[in-house]
Structure formats: C-alpha cells, structure tokens
C-alpha cells in the first residue's frame, strides 16, 4: 500500500480498485446500527485545514471516527496557524503529538508534498490550491461505478473551470487510470495548456458542450466562480451559463442511462439548472454519502497495517 495520498497519480489501477472495493465494504458496514469499527483504535488523525471546508472536514472526521481513530481538528482559525506559524513549524508540532495521519486542506498547490517531507505519518491531500483533491475523485469514481457498474470504457465529460479545478485534475488522472475516456469541456480560457500531455493521453478537449453530451455516460459539472468574470475568462455569467450550463434541454441530449454529477457546492442557475440538480439522474447527494465510505477506505488502507 502507498504511504501518502497526495495526488491521484499516486494510485495505480490496482490500488485505486482496492480503495473502491474497500469503500464498498465500508459502505455496507455503515448501514448497520453500530457504525463504529475498531480498526484504527489508538491511531491519531489530524485534520489540518487552512481553508474553510466544513463538508470535507466533517466527511474525514466521520470516516476517522467510524474507524475508532482519535481525531484532532486543527483549523486555521483560532489556532497558531492564524498567527503566522509556518507550515513547517506546524508540521513539527503535529509530529511531536504523534499524528499517524495528517489530512491537509491548503490554498497552496503542493502543500501536502511539502508536509510529507516534514512528518513521519501519512499525508492525505484534502484539496491543495488549484492542484488536486484525490479523495473527491475517488468518491466520484465510486459513485460512477455503483450507478453504472463499471469505469473501464466509460465516457466522462468534465465541464467548466478545469484550469482552476483540483477536482478536475484528480478526476482526469484517476478515471483515465481506471480505463475511462475523459473529455474536458469549457471555454478555451478555462482549459489548461497541454492537458492531455500533462495528465493523460486518454484526455480529449472540447469547447462544445452540446456536441459532447450525446456521447457521454457521465457529465460532471464543475463549480464556476463568478469572480472569474473580472479576470475576463468569460464575458458574463449569463453567457457562461448559456454556453456551458447544464439545463433541462441539454440534459435531454444525454443518453438514457447517463448520470449528472457535481462536487458541490453548486451555483444553481449558473453551471447547473436547479431542476437538473434535483433530477433522478443527479448523484449529488449520493456523492456526499459515498465520501465517508471512500475516506474510511483510504484511512484504513493507509493506517490499518504496519
């Protein structure tokens, strides 16, 4: 098993599949009355959050607690972090406290890589800047597999602000590792350079959402921040929504079996219409539930053994 989960690129197909299989067992166990499992008794998991993200933090917290780990939440607000303590000094503190794993959310790309150099425990990337969010990609893959039965050969469209999206980067890496065909879709200003060369040769680029939808098994809508308008990535929210938003007429272009995903939080009416978000094809609520199982699997596989 790997020691850290810093990037979806840390996972080969076998390891990624093991995580998804383990998550399935964890999901089954989560259905019962006594949800707690003893596997990580006596282990300490630190949630080190430099960005507010209640949903991701509580998902990791629930996962660690269900495995009986001790959880310490170290958030940027109300701690020495906000007094300007460096990441390295914080790392040395966590090290002294005997953290077996540090789950880190940080606004700087690569912060988990730096942290892994300063602590002995495992480092789990819970989102770093505009780089990656590998557990989100795992839960997305898990959701696709449970809805559609497979990942190999699946056609996935990832739509929106790919340039700034850590969810998109991790998903492209993980899904292509697991045999899916990914198309990133958005205005050219929001598609990063050399995306296929940088991430995976199984990646295609399109600027035309309507052309991609009929050949997609999954369409994943990314959150688009309206502030991008100020930087001229697109002219207006209205134009963005018209060209790249998923509304009912567009959803009808999808094949019958296709599903609609969103990592949340959504801008209803911007990248996704409310009636699409609430339709039976949407997996948005499921994604949240699957998040706990996937994170349990990750923590167990990183910390459960020697």
């Amino acid at each position: 098993m790997i020691k850290h989960l810093r990037s979806a690129a840390d996972l080969d197909a076998a390891t990624a599949t093991l995580i998804l299989d383990t998550a399935a067992e964890m999901a089954a166990l989560s259905g019962r009355e006594v949800k707690k499992l003893p596997a990580l008794r006596g282990r300490t998991v630190v949630n080190l959050f430099y960005e507010d993200s209640t949903r991701t933090r509580i998902s990791f917290e629930a996962a660690a607690k269900r495995l009986s780990a001790d959880v310490i939440n170290f958030s940027a607000k109300g701690s020495s972090v906000s007094k300007g303590e460096s990441l390295k000094d914080t790392a040395l503190t966590l090290q002294a406290m005997g953290a077996d794993a540090v789950v880190i959310r940080h606004s700087a790309s690569g912060a988990p890589h730096r942290l892994a150099g300063w602590v002995d425990g495992s480092v789990v990337n819970a989102g770093d800047g505009t780089h990656e969010h590998p557990t989100q990609a795992l839960l997305d893959a898990y959701t696709m597999r449970s809805r559609l039965g497979r990942l190999d050969g699946l056609r996935v469209a990832i739509v929106g602000d790919v340039l700034h999206s850590r969810v998109a980067r991790s998903n492209v890496l993980l899904l292509t590792t697991l045999g899916a065909q990914v198309t990133v879709v958005g205005p050219p200003t929001l598609i990063p350079l050399d995306v296929a060369a940088a991430l995976s040769s199984r990646t295609r680029v399109s600027y035309d959402l309507d052309a991609v939808l009929p050949d997609s098994d999954v369409v994943m809508m990314l959150r688009v921040q309206t502030e991008r308008m100020q930087d001229s990535y697109f002219p207006s929210a209205r134009e963005y929504s018209r060209r790249y938003g998923l509304d009912m007429p567009r959803m009808k272009k999808l094949p019958e079996h296709a599903i609609v995903m969103h990592p949340g939080p959504m801008n209803r009416g911007m990248e996704i219409a409310p009636e699409v978000a609430d339709s039976p094809r949407s997996t948005i609520v499921e994604q949240v539930a699957n998040g706990v199982s996937v994170r349990m699997a990750v923590l167990y596989l990183l910390l459960g053994g020697k």
């Binding site: 167990y300 459960g304 053994g305």
Partner: peptide
C-alpha cells in the same frame, strides 16, 4: 463475517484487503 477490522494483529502486518460481511 469478515473479521479483518477486528483483528488484534492489524498493525503487525501490511494492510489487508477486506473480505465480505453479508
């Protein structure tokens, strides 16, 4: 009944894959 998560020797060996509990 999978017992992996309840084993007392989990930490003595590499991480084990889970079996099924049904």
């Amino acid at each position: 009944l999978d017992i992996t998560l309840y084993r007392d020797d989990l930490r003595l060996k590499a991480t084990r894959a889970l079996g099924k509990t049904e």
